[in-house]
């Protein structure tokens, strides 16, 4: 695993060491077993694998929503024992709150995170300006006063990304955020994510089923095995940044996607 050795653990923002996670008591399903993964700062990691491979469990372990029974998860130098507030999360379902305007939805994390919640009232203007700037970067300028149900699915997902980023998290965890979108909207949002990653000091972990998405966006693609999930391979993505959507039509790109596809098919058979 060359990606890991080069970077070393000192640089790692997230390091998962030999983690077992079992749901529902000692006899329950073992979701991941012997999971080892290290994610460097500023890195864009995509996690792919057959369905039910514990990708969502990985998300919950890193964010501290689940504490592993065995092994350790270290985020930003601290072992995770409770939810870590340096992460932003976005899921396939945008889960915007329908009674709040888009702007208020984006501001929601600031009402929760310790660092901001006490400042929010006094510095409201500053935060609103920040949220509006963020909405502009994802192409939602002027939509802050709309309600989420007045936005299309793609726009809701853009707003969802803003909500995940408003508190300037060091780590952004994306769980198939583009799964429910049509192909064109999805490509647009890939570019949004790509530009966000390029312009901000943020580490991104993207869990996805879409191999083209993973190769287009990530610095490194991690392949997980079928349940109980563990990392079976890590592939650095060789393509230069900034990447253009055009690269998806290059033969090297398709070769990599095909190789990943083969690996996942193997991982499924072994299960």
């Amino acid at each position: 695993m060359p990606g890991r050795l080069e970077r070393g653990d000192a640089m790692a923002l997230v390091s998962i060491e030999n983690v077992d996670m079992r749901y529902g008591g000692p006899e329950g399903t073992l979701a991941v077993s012997g999971l080892d993964l290290s994610i460097a700062r500023r890195d864009f990691t995509a996690v792919v694998g057959p369905s039910g491979c514990g990708k969502s469990t990985l998300m919950k372990l890193v964010t501290g929503l689940h504490i592993p029974q065995k092994g350790a998860v270290v985020v930003a130098g601290h072992e995770v024992t409770k939810p870590v507030s340096i992460v932003g999360m976005a899921f396939q379902n945008p889960t915007m709150l329908p009674w709040r305007t888009t702007l208020d939805n984006v501001l929601l994390p600031l009402e929760i995170v310790e660092k901001h919640r006490h400042r929010l009232r006094k510095h409201k203007d500053e935060y609103v300006a920040q949220a509006e700037a963020l909405l502009e970067t994802v192409g939602l300028k002027g939509f802050g006063s709309k309600y989420p149900w007045q936005l299309s699915g793609g726009m809701q997902q853009r707003a969802n990304l803003c909500r995940a980023l408003i508190h300037e998290p060091e780590l952004l965890m994306l769980d198939e955020p583009f799964g429910a979108l049509d192909a064109f909207t999805r490509e647009e949002l890939w570019c949004v994510i790509r530009d966000l990653h390029a312009s901000r000091d943020v580490t991104i972990v993207l869990v996805t089923h879409d191999l083209r998405e993973s190769v287009f966006l990530a610095d490194r693609v991690v392949v997980m095995s079928a349940r109980p999930g563990r990392v079976v391979a890590e592939h650095p993505v060789p393509f230069e940044r900034p990447r253009d959507l055009e690269i998806m039509y290059r033969p090297e790109f398709n070769e990599m996607v095909q190789a990943l596809h083969g690996e996942i098919a193997n991982a499924r058979e072994l299960a």
Binding site: K82, S85, T95, R163
Partner: peptide
Amino acid sequence: ETEDVLRALGA
């Protein structure tokens, strides 16, 4: 998902 998003923020 909503609950996860908020809990991960320390809610």
